[in-house]
Simulated scan of single mutants.
Amino acid sequence: NMPGGATQVGNPTGAHQSSTPALGIDDWDNPDAPVFAEIAPMPAGLETWVSLYLAITKNPERGSFVYDKATDRAMLRWTREQNAPAVAAAKSLFDRINKANTTMYRYDLFGPQLKNFADDFCYHPLGGCVLGKATDDYGRVAGYHNLYVTDGALIPGSIGVNPFVTITALAERNIERVIAEDVRTAA
């Protein structure tokens, strides 16, 4: 899970900010609340006095999809309460950061509820069509000719860091094999 949190800082962050993570805070080995947090400056175009943290946690909770025959749809089974372990882990880290830097939480960024964590999104969704289970080892969907998965759905859960590079590496590796074995042999 990846809850977001924001703290107010005492020094300007600058109006011209990047939109990619600028720093990582590794507290992954913390036995009570493992977290890896990315500081992603808010690209607002004006001074915000804010650092936005995206926290990757080891949430033991997992969602699942269940087929609803009446509606002929797959429904996600996930409750808001399942976010609690992720938010608690992130809060533990951010509380320590705020204390050490004499900063404080912002309560005005995530809607009218005046909360300091946004736990209603998933920044890098993973899983759903896991490599080696729903697909072969190269993303070919079992039982479907010429149907491939090449995104984060192949990864079963959190890998502890931003999964962008892992997803890219898997996609490149898989497509090379698919081109070599499926496309070239069909031609």
Rank of each mutant, 00 (worst) to 15 (best):
82 Q>I: 14
82 Q>M: 15
83 N>G: 00
84 A>D: 14
84 A>V: 15
85 P>K: 14
85 P>L: 13
86 A>F: 08
87 V>T: 12
89 A>S: 14
89 A>T: 06
90 A>N: 10
91 K>R: 15
91 K>I: 00
92 S>I: 00
93 L>W: 02
94 F>A: 06
95 D>V: 09
96 R>C: 01
96 R>H: 02
97 I>P: 02
97 I>Q: 04
97 I>C: 05
99 K>T: 12
100 A>F: 04
100 A>L: 12
102 T>L: 09
103 T>D: 00
103 T>W: 00
104 M>G: 11
106 R>D: 07
107 Y>V: 06
107 Y>R: 12
107 Y>N: 12
112 P>E: 06
112 P>N: 08
112 P>L: 06
113 Q>R: 13
114 L>V: 08
115 K>T: 15
118 A>F: 14
118 A>E: 12
119 D>H: 11
119 D>I: 10
120 D>T: 12
120 D>P: 00
120 D>S: 09
121 F>Y: 12
122 C>E: 15
123 Y>E: 10
123 Y>F: 12
123 Y>S: 12
124 H>D: 12
129 C>Q: 10
130 V>H: 01
130 V>M: 03
130 V>Y: 01
131 L>F: 01
131 L>W: 02
133 K>G: 00
134 A>Q: 15
134 A>G: 15
134 A>I: 01
135 T>R: 14
136 D>C: 10
137 D>Y: 02
139 G>M: 11
139 G>K: 11
139 G>E: 11
139 G>H: 09
141 V>R: 04
144 Y>P: 01
144 Y>G: 03
144 Y>W: 07
147 L>G: 02
147 L>Y: 03
147 L>R: 04
148 Y>V: 07
148 Y>R: 06
148 Y>S: 03
150 T>L: 15
150 T>M: 13
153 A>P: 01
154 L>P: 00
154 L>T: 09
155 I>R: 08
155 I>T: 14
155 I>Y: 08
156 P>T: 09
157 G>W: 11
158 S>A: 10
158 S>F: 07
158 S>W: 09
159 I>G: 00
160 G>D: 04
161 V>W: 12
162 N>S: 09
162 N>K: 07
163 P>C: 08
165 V>W: 08
167 I>N: 01
167 I>F: 01
167 I>A: 01
168 T>H: 08
169 A>E: 13
171 A>I: 05
171 A>T: 08
173 R>L: 05
173 R>W: 04
174 N>A: 09
174 N>F: 08
174 N>Y: 07
